[in-house]
């Protein structure tokens, strides 16, 4: 509890350009027998999220989004009822999470979510996992992230989550890092900020 990490995210604009980076801070605020709660905030954005993970499966179970619209604070609850990779809905916070539990998690998954208690549909996602060498994962990163991680030499795991033939997100994870080093979706790119020793 209390551990934290930072993630930089850039967003694809409507005209196809990428935005400047927004720095999101992830902080573990509660860790109990079965759940772990992580708060995500940013000094550059009024939005924040409270993420609740199932410790046994690593499954993201519950998300509380707090945003501001015209000065009005807006709170939304998203509940994930299935064991599945999860990608953000209704939020720009990069809380994409693959499914970790199985030893060979290349499979199809059913993602069912409730927004404020109401179903927002059910969809099938497929997940593929493969090891990636340093050269391979470095080549996937944008230039800024490459510069930040050029001294990190480790083999990682690349998760690719698709819906049908469309990529939903891909993500690179390492054993010794608290969060995905890199996440890419159709509308955002996010990378872990490297902590200097």
């Amino acid at each position: 509890m209390g551990s934290s990490w930072e993630v930089r995210a850039v967003y694809r604009q409507v005209n196809g350009d990428w935005s400047g980076p927004v720095l999101w801070t992830f902080t573990v605020i509660a860790e109990e027998e079965e759940i772990c709660q992580v708060r995500v905030t940013s000094e550059e954005s009024p939005g924040q999220a409270l993420l609740e993970f199932d410790k046994g499966s690593g499954q993201l179970r519950h998300v509380t989004l707090t945003d501001t619209l015209r000065g009005e604070v807006m709170v939304r609850e998203i509940r994930i009822n299935t064991l599945s990779p999860v990608y953000p809905s209704f939020s720009a916070i990069p809380f994409h999470v693959p499914f970790f539990l199985y030893s060979s998690p290349n499979d199809d998954f059913r993602l069912e979510r409730l927004l404020n208690g109401r179903s927002i549909g059910s969809e099938t996602l497929s997940q593929a996992v493969e090891p990636v060498s340093r050269i391979q994962w470095t080549s996937l990163l944008p230039k800024e992230a490459q510069d930040e991680w050029k001294a990190y030499d480790s083999e990682g795991m690349l998760f690719s989550i698709q819906k049908g033939d469309r990529l939903v997100f891909k993500q690179i994870w390492f054993q010794d890092l608290p969060w995905a080093l890199y996440t890419e979706s159709k509308d955002s790119r996010a990378w872990l900020k490297r902590e200097l020793p």
Partner: peptide, 26 residues
């Protein structure tokens, strides 16, 4: 001038691979 955004589909720019019919989830 720049904004954080949730996008449903991707912009069609007339390039190879761009899809005008891809409002997500489909």
């Amino acid at each position: 001038s720049q904004y954080t955004v949730m996008t449903y589909g991707t912009v069609f720019g007339g390039l190879s691979g761009d899809d005008p019919d891809d409002i997500y989830p489909g």
